[in-house]
Design a protein around this nucleic acid. Structure first.
Lengths: 139, 139
DNA sequence: TTCCAGTTTAGAATTATTATAAACTAGAAA
DNA sequence: TTTCTAGTTTATAATAATTCTAAACTGGAA
């Protein structure tokens, strides 16, 4: 699934967000973003995949720190679920999800697949940051 | 905020779901459902409120068991958030939420306030159980 | 080359939830 | 009413996810 070596791009990207391009962050960048399809994950799954067969390990704490930093920087998006675990998505564009209650799997719904014809006005002094739809499905 | 003593109604309601109407369950029913406005809570907040000034305490384990039982029975609805904590809502009707990222508070959005003009077809063999919109707001 | 703020790390601490197993109780049946 | 038992409650232990801590490490400016 790895497309190409976008290392220089990642270095720039990280610098532009005041994140030092460390070995660990670049490794995680390559794993997350060098792919065609978007990727859904939890810290647990990311940790397993990153440290599967690597010579040098990335610590769990760093995985947590990095995911948090990338989310704040806008490179990742947190997904809403009812599980007590954080889910992330490499697709940061406005889009929605199917959540399969049986398999507990998330699938993207392209933003064009859902159209809202009416949206409420936010409370005074607040503005809308984003709008997410989760459609729970079952057999 | 307590409206009236609906004890008999709760006894019937619980029986109809094969839940014995125990002291603890009835106490929780009265607290949750004897009110005009709907109520958002976590197990933590519910535990505090139920045990605030009561002569007899309801154990935390029972709060968990009861909330789980009431959710399965359809008396409560789990709310989708990005926090690692379960949120529940006494409003089980189809409706949506504002989630204030600053105060971390949830506000109901009546279902009529949001209108969808296009909804995707679920994957084969699956059907839609529900559809929830969360609008994140900030200053 | 030096230096230091930013980063990584292992492990401890914390928080939310689930599991366990003994004691209790609602309510059917005697 | 009393007896009996499956369902329920409870304190506590166990587990799981995340955050904290503080010591060691490092990118990159000077």
């Amino acid at each position: 699934m790895i497309i190409s070596d976008n290392l220089k791009i990642y270095v720039q990207k990280l610098r532009s967000s005041n994140l030092r391009p460390t070995k660990q962050r670049l490794k995680i960048c390559q794993f997350l973003f060098d792919r065609e399809k978007t990727f859904h994950f939890t810290v647990e799954t990311l940790n397993k995949k990153i440290n599967k067969n690597g010579a040098s390990k990335v610590s769990l704490a760093t995985i947590y720190n990095t995911v948090e930093a990338f989310t704040s920087a806008g490179y990742l998006k947190e997904i809403l679920t009812s599980k007590n675990k954080s889910y992330y998505d490499t697709n940061i564009k406005s889009h929605h999800h199917f959540y399969d209650e049986g398999s507990k799997e998330l699938t993207d719904i392209h933003y064009s697949q859902i159209q809202l014809s009416k949206v409420p006005i936010p409370p005074k002094g607040k503005k809308i940051k984003n709008l997410e739809v989760v459609i729970r499905i079952q057999k």
